[in-house]
Each structure stands twice: as structure tokens, then as C-alpha cells.
Design a binder for these strands. Structure first.
Lengths: 143, 143
DNA sequence: TCTTATATAGGAATTACTCTTATTTAAGAA
DNA sequence: TTCTTAAATAAGAGTAATTCCTATATAAGA
């Protein structure tokens, strides 16, 4: 997730979005913060460099980014929505107790699932993406 | 999900919970309503037969039911949490546009996943459950 | 540079959910 | 059956997250 300023602008352009300082800052924040930040964490981060940014703008821009597939929503059992700038296919490992979420990448798994559902052929449904939610507990307390 | 009154009471008892009219009504509501209701939908449903029930009680009871594995939380991309009384292992087919959620049962899939992760053996993490969120679009408008 | 569709600021409004405390109740014990 | 008490509920105020509204500002194509 090391994107320079130019790359961020390019991503916005590629998605057909006007490039504004706010959008740039928000997309950058989600990338930089990593670890699936909440909207609140994004706001805090951004206010340091863009003190005037409005709360509503951040939510609106996050929605726009999600709609244009630049960011994903990650839901947890708790109240606040979290965001993820990694669009490459991946899954999430959840620890309910600590609210910790780790990314899980596994190409073999993705291929296996794709093959499985191709064969299965769900009638009446066009699959756009399959995401595993792996629940459990971390054995360590690292991170 | 055709549970009679007695079966609902038994479920509560089996979980080691006191049987109260409110708990009975709420567990019944989640079963009856099906289709992954929100807390709000549960409240509406229950108020018909139990006009005096407090909002806080419904949320609290739902939490209790989740803690005791009588009900599951279903995560969506939208704000409100949804609930599911089916505890048998299953996955969810989700259409973001319409917020429609269908249950998906597939024993073969479950076995395949279990075998896969047994072999993979994630270090530092004890898996308690794996749930697929299958995103996409329904081709029909039925239901 | 000009134009205009689009985006943002600012903050009030709404929603979904939580918390607190006094009261009530389920269910085991006597 | 009645008593006892830990646990559950009502009521509604409180809170946090998110959305909504509209006047103003701006990006980027003409």
C-alpha cells in the first residue's frame, strides 16, 4: 500500500472521478492507516493536514470510493463501519473479543472456490465476489 | 424454523437462560420473521403482542441470545445489524443493491473448507467458524 | 478563461444502539 | 405453596455513528 501522490490521483481518474484534495487525502488516509480504520480514524488522520474538512464530506467521499471500487467496507459485530483500501481479493480473519481484523490472502483458496461455484452454478444469482469471514481467536497477543 | 412454544422454551433452558416472556417473544420473532431481520423489525413484530416491551430490552435480549449461540449476527455493508435464528452451519448470498440476503447450505463446501484449513493450519489462530459471504446480484425479482 | 456539473463545508437531524436505575420476575429452596 | 434472591425488564435519556440539506466553491472540459 505504498502509493505516491501521483498514483492516488491516477486511481481516482481511472475510476472516472474528479480529483479533489479531499478525495486525495481520504484515499491516502485509508491506504496509510491500514488495519481497517473506521471513518472516525480517517477523520482524525486527515484533520491534521486538512483541518477544515467536514465530517459529512468524509462519509460522502468514502461512499463514493466504495461505489467506485477503490475501497471496501468491512463490517464487524460492533457498531462502526470499517474501511479497507486493499482491493485485491482477500479474506478477513476476525477475533470477536478483540475486534482485531487481519487480512488473509490465499490464491489457492480463491481458485478452489471459483472452480467450486463454477461447477455448482447457482441459478438466479450472478456472483461478483466471495469473501470468507474466518472467526476465532488469536493465540498470541502480538500486534 | 417451525418451533412451537415449548421448543422455544426448551432452547432457552438448554442455553442455561431464565425463560421470560420477553426472551420467548424475541427468539420466536427472529425465527418467525426469517429473512434476517433487523432489531427494528423485531421490535415492530413484538410490539403487536407485547406492547410494553422496551427497546433496550430487545437489544439486550438479542445480545444475550447471540452470546448463548441461539441467534447469529449477520454482517452487511449497511448500517443496521441483522439477526439469524438458524444456527446450523450455513453461508449467505447477499445482494448489496436490494439488501436481500438468502441462506446457503452446502455440506460439501463446508467439508472442503474444513479439510483445506486443516491442511493449511493457520498458526496463531484457532478457527471457530468459517462463513462465506457471496456477493452479487439476483437475476430474478422473486421473493 | 469560462462554464457548469460536481463536490464540499457546516451543522442540524436522524438513526441505531447503549446505559442507568428502580422495579419486577423466574425458578430454585424451604 | 410461599419465600428468596439473583437476574431480567421498563422507561427513556444519552451517545455515537451516520445522513441530510443547501449555499458556496471548485475541477476540468469547452
Amino acid at each position: 500500500m505504498k502509493l505516491n501522490s501521483e498514483q492516488i490521483n491516477q486511481k481516482l481518474k481511472d475510476a472516472g472521478l474528479k480529483v479533489t484534495p479531499q478525495r486525495h487525502a481520504i484515499l491516502e488516509a485509508v491506504c496509510r492507516l491500514g488495519n481497517h480504520p473506521t471513518a472516525d480514524m480517517v477523520i482524525d488522520y486527515i484533520r491534521r493536514t486538512h483541518p477544515g474538512i467536514a465530517t459529512g464530506t468524509v462519509y460522502k467521499v468514502l461512499d463514493t470510493l466504495v461505489d467506485n471500487h477503490l475501497v471496501r467496507r468491512v463490517k464487524t459485530d460492533k457498531d462502526a463501519m470499517r474501511y479497507d483500501a486493499i482491493m485485491e481479493s482477500h479474506h478477513h480473519i476476525y477475533c470477536a473479543e478483540t475486534e482485531r481484523i487481519e487480512d488473509y490472502f490465499d490464491k489457492d483458496l480463491d481458485e478452489m472456490l471459483q472452480a467450486y461455484f463454477q461447477k455448482k452454478n447457482l441459478h438466479n444469482f450472478k456472483i461478483e465476489g466471495i469473501f470468507l469471514q474466518i472467526n476465532g481467536n488469536f493465540n498470541d497477543n502480538s500486534k
